[in-house]
Amino acid sequence: MKPTITEQEAKAKVEAYIEAAVGALPGTAERKPFTQNRSECTDPTDNGPHGRFEISATYEVTGLEPARFAEYFDAIVEWMSAHDFKVLTDSRPKDQYVFVRNNADAFDMSIQANDLGKFYIGATSPCVWPNGTPEPQALEADQPEQPVAAPPEPEPEPSRKPRRAPVDDEDFAQTNWTDGGTSY
């Protein structure tokens, strides 16, 4: 099992990515915390052991003109492309949603806006060990109790999908966004 960055490093990188992306917006843009989460990794396409976590944060961006949301999306997507992010989902113009993944470190980011004039930007880390190294119980679970026969031929790895399903704009606009979510 490979070491990862720590949860604290993942949290710092999530915040840095969001701050830098918001920097592509006009000076009137301000970040307002919306959610911060620490979620156990359960992604079956990850093929990794239990005991790792994803760190994520979403901010509502205030101080923007809803009539210019398309322009703001373009500015952030341009910043993302210049910083080695690959667009995995771009639902524009039907929906105001873009989902990207960084080619170098597998951090995800998303931008979403709605007809209520709300604009959100978020980032999620890949699966990380809390302290950067596998926990002892994960190491024990990785060790077979007795010798086993040669492993079967490996199946091709499934293509990796976004860790979180895209939110369609219809559900997004009907969601009560006044609940702030959980914190670290």
Score class of each variant (00 low, 15 high):
residue 91 S to F: 12
residue 94 K to A: 14
residue 108 D to P: 00
residue 109 M to D: 02
residue 76 I to S: 05
residue 139 L to N: 00
residue 81 S to F: 01
residue 169 D to T: 06
residue 162 P to K: 11
residue 87 V to T: 15
residue 51 G to P: 00
residue 88 L to S: 05
residue 142 D to H: 11
residue 37 N to G: 10
residue 58 T to H: 04
residue 178 T to A: 15
residue 1 M to I: 07
residue 81 S to A: 15
residue 171 D to I: 01
residue 154 P to M: 13
residue 152 P to K: 11
residue 96 Q to I: 01
residue 65 E to A: 14
residue 154 P to T: 06
residue 57 A to T: 02
residue 182 T to P: 04
residue 131 N to G: 09
residue 25 L to R: 07
residue 50 H to D: 11
residue 78 E to C: 07
residue 70 A to G: 12
residue 28 T to N: 06
residue 143 Q to G: 00
residue 183 S to R: 14
residue 26 P to L: 08
residue 151 P to I: 07
residue 85 F to Q: 05
residue 22 V to G: 08
residue 116 L to P: 00
residue 69 F to M: 01
residue 105 D to Q: 02
residue 164 R to F: 15
residue 1 M to K: 03
residue 119 F to V: 02
residue 68 R to L: 15
residue 32 K to V: 06
residue 76 I to K: 04
residue 93 P to L: 14
residue 73 F to G: 05
residue 86 K to A: 15
residue 130 P to R: 11
residue 178 T to F: 15
residue 55 I to C: 08
residue 158 P to I: 04
residue 102 N to L: 04
residue 117 G to M: 03
residue 11 K to H: 10
residue 172 F to T: 06
residue 160 R to T: 04
residue 116 L to T: 05
residue 174 Q to P: 00
residue 121 I to D: 04
residue 137 Q to W: 12
residue 129 W to P: 01
residue 59 Y to F: 14
residue 19 E to T: 14
residue 146 Q to R: 10
residue 174 Q to Y: 14
residue 160 R to D: 05
residue 108 D to T: 10
residue 152 P to R: 06
residue 145 E to L: 11
residue 171 D to L: 13
residue 19 E to I: 03
residue 106 A to D: 13
residue 107 F to G: 09
residue 113 A to Y: 04
residue 175 T to Q: 13
residue 43 D to G: 00
residue 146 Q to V: 05
residue 39 S to A: 15
residue 101 R to E: 11
residue 96 Q to V: 00
residue 143 Q to L: 12
residue 70 A to D: 15
residue 63 G to M: 07
residue 180 G to D: 02
residue 177 W to A: 11
residue 113 A to D: 02
residue 163 R to F: 10
residue 147 P to S: 09
residue 144 P to F: 13
residue 29 A to T: 02
residue 55 I to E: 12
residue 14 V to H: 11
residue 5 I to S: 10
residue 130 P to I: 06
residue 118 K to I: 05
residue 140 E to Q: 11
residue 133 T to Y: 08
residue 161 K to D: 01
residue 145 E to D: 08
residue 15 E to P: 00
residue 123 A to V: 03
residue 141 A to V: 01
residue 142 D to Y: 13
residue 183 S to E: 09
residue 10 A to Q: 09
residue 86 K to P: 00
residue 90 D to H: 10
residue 179 D to K: 15
residue 81 S to Y: 02
residue 154 P to A: 12
residue 137 Q to C: 01
residue 174 Q to T: 11
residue 72 Y to E: 09
residue 148 V to H: 05
residue 45 T to M: 10
residue 14 V to M: 09
residue 131 N to I: 03
residue 49 P to G: 13
residue 63 G to L: 05
residue 171 D to H: 07
